Computed example of a mutant assay.
Amino acid sequence: MLLPHHPARDWAEIQERMLVPLYEAVHERLGVGPGTRLLGLDCGTGLALLMAAARGASAAGAERDPARAELAVERLRWEVPVTPEAPAEGSYDVVTAFHAAFPPAVSPAVLTRAAQSGAAVVVAGWGPPERCAAEPLLRSADRPGAGPEALVARAGLRPVAAGRVACPFGYADGASAVRGLLSTGAFDAALRSAGPGPVEKELEEALAPHRRDDGTVWMPNVFRYVIARVP
């Protein structure tokens, strides 16, 4: 069995960095920089916000998980505010939901309520299943109707652009891979019902095809993102 599971810290230290290419691609495409007011929904432990702030944007985040929010505040040193819920209204010109492929589900209602007219709303999710090695393991997180196109449509928005980004999941060893994948939240129900031992064992077996001779774990993935504009 692994050491005690600390999902928020494992997300911050292992898993979140896997999505850096996605964050960078979206920030570049939207020209995020000085003058941009960006809100990150379900912002995790704040890495995407930190990257936006480094580009000169005025960034803020909403994170419902108290442990992740605490680490986000620690990482951002109060320079980027993180609150439990998205503002009821606001004047953000970019709203991101980068982690919509992972639990908890993003509510369509919050995608637009803090966005000003003309704002870009970005929702990301898994790319084609045949190009996502991790998707079968995390399928419980990709619930029917929770893909980026569906979320944008349910929010009453029409996509204006989309893209795909390679986001391989690479881990130093099998233990790191298990901890990173557990931190996504996709296995929380299984952990509650079966306990960590059986879930970890099942994950270790599922990761066997992705282990390389040097002990590292490599899982190629493609994520897709959809951009919509608020009327």
Rank of each mutant, 00 (worst) to 15 (best):
L191Q: 00
V32Y: 10
E130Y: 05
V178E: 06
L151T: 11
F98C: 00
A62H: 07
V122E: 08
L30Y: 06
A190L: 15
H27G: 10
A134L: 09
A114T: 05
T112S: 12
D188V: 11
R17H: 13
G44I: 08
V110L: 12
D213E: 15
D10I: 01
R113L: 03
T36V: 10
V222G: 03
R77L: 10
P136I: 03
A100D: 07
T216Q: 13
E130N: 12
M1P: 11
A186K: 00
S193G: 03
P4W: 02
R77V: 11
V152F: 09
G61H: 11
G118K: 04
A72T: 03
P159V: 12
V106R: 03
P87H: 03
P220W: 08
G127H: 04
P81C: 04
A53I: 07
E202L: 06
F169Y: 15
R158Y: 01
E130C: 08
L71A: 02
A124C: 14
G31C: 08
A105C: 04
A100E: 07
S91T: 10
A208G: 00
R158Q: 13
A150G: 06
A175N: 03
P231G: 13
D173F: 14
G195T: 14
E200V: 14
G33H: 11
F102P: 04
L39E: 05
S140M: 01
A133Y: 11
E13I: 00
S140K: 08
G46M: 07
L38P: 13
Q116A: 15
P209V: 02
P108H: 13
E24K: 04
E205I: 09
L71P: 02
V94S: 12
A175Y: 04
A97F: 07
A175D: 15
L19A: 11
H5R: 12
F98P: 00
H27F: 13
G90L: 08
L41I: 14
M51D: 08
A72M: 06
R131S: 12
D10P: 01
W218R: 15
A155F: 11
A109E: 15
T45A: 15
E149T: 15
E28L: 09
A97I: 12
P21D: 01
S140Q: 08
